[in-house]
Design a protein around this nucleic acid. Structure first.
Lengths: 183, 183
DNA sequence: TCAAATAGGTTTAGATTCGATACTATTTAA
DNA sequence: TTAAATAGTATCGAATCTAAACCTATTTGA
């Protein structure tokens, strides 16, 4: 048993290292730092509740001060723009400019995962389980979220914020994600 | 199709980030840096052809200068010891002391992957495929290596180095690993 | 045999990141 | 009205990372 678990841990470890290597290689080719690419990747898939300095900090597991610095650089270089929240003026929503969006696209294209499709359900389950067991935020999409309501075709409502969401909205990553009860 | 691949990439990205977060958290609890734990984890599973500064550098995707520095620290603190190769005196084999080994054990124990066993074959296949497509070193075990020969029960020979290997040897990670032809 | 090339490792210098702390501004709660 | 909590920024010191130069040992090749 223990051996079996260690084996999974081992491959996961390696997979994680390989993924980081590829990301770093891509970052270098673009003349960027690894963390900058990671931030842009995250912003390309995060929803309106999750596009803040704080959320990025929790996602990447680095302090918000460090992320704040990196965001300052990315903004100066025109990859990212900030928009102050209209209601809560402490919050700044971050989004990719066309330039930043192009980087994220190239990044996804550069990591070739052909043939890995069948792993998706397993990866997702493993991920949810690990996040939960270790007290990390959910970071999942609305599809599997217990707050998600679907009162009509292509009509969604977030039970937590009571806001309407489009189908596209529900495909993005949310920091408030909480797994639906199994069944 | 593209969407499906992006979804896998997305979960892989997140899994990689979560894994790194957990490793970093563990490192902090031990009063160590992330990279130090990663090095010890690697040394706990690498074989005699792969326990060098150079190999660690390729595994973790960082420069050998950087790894050399970290190894110096780990040696000073008694986690790692170096042994000069008897034949090629440029090479120093690295291994964990009892203190270092204990850290690696605690690390494996702290990452709870219960229920992930069934993912193992898929992860391994994905890993091999990614490494190959991106021109990265194999880093696998003898079991799936084309150089591995098995002339008798519990008797193994590496076709590349012509050396005898024990069953335990064949479970470790090798930087010369090359996938056996499929079939 | 001997010089040149290669390979494993270390060292150094400069840039960057990281974490901790302190600070501002805004919002929420009492 | 105040106190506490939240979102984010600024600053500083410590540590890491990369690139390049450097050292030594080994291999190559004429």
């Amino acid at each position: 048993m223990a051996n079996q678990i260690n084996a999974v841990s081992q491959w996961l470890e390696r997979l994680s290292a390989v993924h980081r290597n590829l990301m770093r290689r891509f970052a270098n080719e673009e003349g960027l730092q690894l963390v900058h690419v990671e931030i842009m990747q995250y912003l390309s898939v995060s929803n309106r509740y999750s596009d803040t300095t704080q959320a990025i900090s929790e996602y990447l597991g680095q302090t918000k001060g460090s992320i704040s610095q990196s965001l300052g650089l990315l903004e100066d270089q025109g990859f990212v723009k900030r928009t102050q929240d209209k209601i809560d003026k402490r919050i700044f929503h971050l989004s990719l400019t066309a330039k930043g969006s192009a980087v994220a696209h190239r990044m996804f294209a550069s990591i070739d995962l052909e043939g890995a499709e069948e792993l998706e359900p397993g990866l997702k389950t493993l991920l949810t389980s690990i996040q939960k067991k270790n007290g990390l935020r959910g970071f999942g999409t609305c599809i599997s979220c217990r707050f998600n309501q679907n009162p009509g075709k292509n009509l969604f409502v977030c039970g937590l914020t009571k806001e309407k969401l489009t189908l596209e909205d529900t495909k993005k990553i949310c920091k408030e994600h909480d797994e639906a009860a199994s069944g």
